[in-house]
Design a protein around this nucleic acid. Structure first.
Lengths: 218, 218
DNA sequence: ATAAATTTTTAGACTTGTCTAATTTTTAAA
DNA sequence: TTTAAAAATTAGACAAGTCTAAAAATTTAT
């Protein structure tokens, strides 16, 4: 069995790996986990001895098959718990993260399979991220950032890149939800803000907002 | 905030306190937590510094108001999670303990209040133990052990004293459930076994079994 | 190609929580 | 009441995980 700390490192490496084909650097892990590079170095040694990652000093790390399996199952648990909190316990999507960070470490295969069934085998978490099934498989949907769309183009909002509470609350205030159709009306060269039409309303949003909304591409 | 280990000690002291009016001894705690007396001594010092228990060397410990509050909330969480597992996730009453031991340490006031509501504010866990409400209040039902009943007496089975998996599985095999009416037909002096009538069936059970079943007294 | 900047690792310290072995205190027994 | 047994505590060690500060390796820039 693995400690919560080990699981957190594996999850961080798993998520950082998905955005680069190179190994993951010590510093990147440290930043992601808000810890010191020296602590990461120590943990890398431990995980390496346990054959959960591959590691050569001064080079990045990669997950082994087993490391990836564990990381993926932690992600699965995290996202299933998020669905539970939102669907069953009236949490809003900006409140779930910290609790799911705790719940993802509960050890019980039966618990997670039953929870999955209880929730109706959801495919996405409240932020639009895919939930791996028990074998680690998940469906990748073609998507792009709203900031990449040109005036006249449109699509369905299917996820958020940043799932910080502040960003999600902003979306709530603007009544922007997953599943909404968003059409880009115009782009403002001066500040890169864009004018969109969403759900019959028109709205002006900044470049930063547009860079954190995923749009399904047909 | 308190560590899982600290919470476990407080819970153990809380539960041991309920069966004696004296302070709780180091050895009793060690036995309950399956650890060494020296470890208990160490932890007692820490909890005492944090004002969660009162402690005088070589005498038993008692919870302070705050210590009791924490312990009670851990018990509340444990029992609510047990109800969740049985009512919603198809766990049987002999499978819930270990998972609830983990879940009871999740920190989120909203989580536990919403869970309580989601479950319909249950008053008892699957083993018949009372669930404290958010203020720490719970209803104590007058009860006695089945082994204390005399031939001719009867009552409703409302709880188990031992909630080990082995005992609960035995009850399942004999189809003895909480809520069943049990009447004592006869007692056997030779081995203290008793003959009972339950749910139209007649059954012979040992002294040990009868000493672990709670019966509601009118 | 060498120096400067950055990244990574190591050395050593600290905390939490545990253990064994030895000692002290309390309790029970003769 | 002195002794033996039981219970509790202390001393010292260890493992996990973290940190700071310093050293080593690598990368970048001139």
């Amino acid at each position: 069995m693995f400690s919560q700390s080990e699981e957190n490192y594996l999850k961080a490496i798993y998520q950082l790996s998905s955005i680069t084909k190179d190994g993951v650097s010590t510093n990147d892990i440290a930043k992601k986990l808000e810890t010191k590079a020296s602590s990461v170095s120590d943990m890398i040694k431990r995980l390496s001895e346990k054959k959960l990652i591959e590691y050569k000093k001064y080079y990045g790390v990669r997950l082994t098959k087993e490391g990836e399996h564990i990381a993926c199952s932690v992600v699965r648990k995290h996202r299933l718990w998020e669905v539970f909190l939102v669907d069953k316990l009236n949490f809003s999507w900006d409140e779930v993260h910290d609790v799911a960070e705790q719940l993802e470490h509960i050890k019980s295969p039966k618990l997670i399979e039953e929870l999955d069934a209880f929730l109706g085998f959801p495919k996405k978490d409240p932020h639009g991220d895919p939930i791996p099934d028990k074998h680690g498989n998940y469906h990748v949907v073609e998507k792009t950032l709203l900031s990449n769309l040109h005036p006249g183009e449109k699509g369905i909002c299917i996820g958020v890149k940043d799932s910080s509470s502040d960003f999600l609350k902003y979306l709530d205030r603007q009544a922007v939800k997953l599943g909404d159709e968003i059409a880009v009306m115009a782009k403002e060269d001066y500040d890169d803000s864009i004018h969109i039409k969403i759900d019959k309303r028109e709205l002006n949003i900044s470049k930063k907002i547009a860079s954190n909304l995923y749009i399904q591409t047909p």
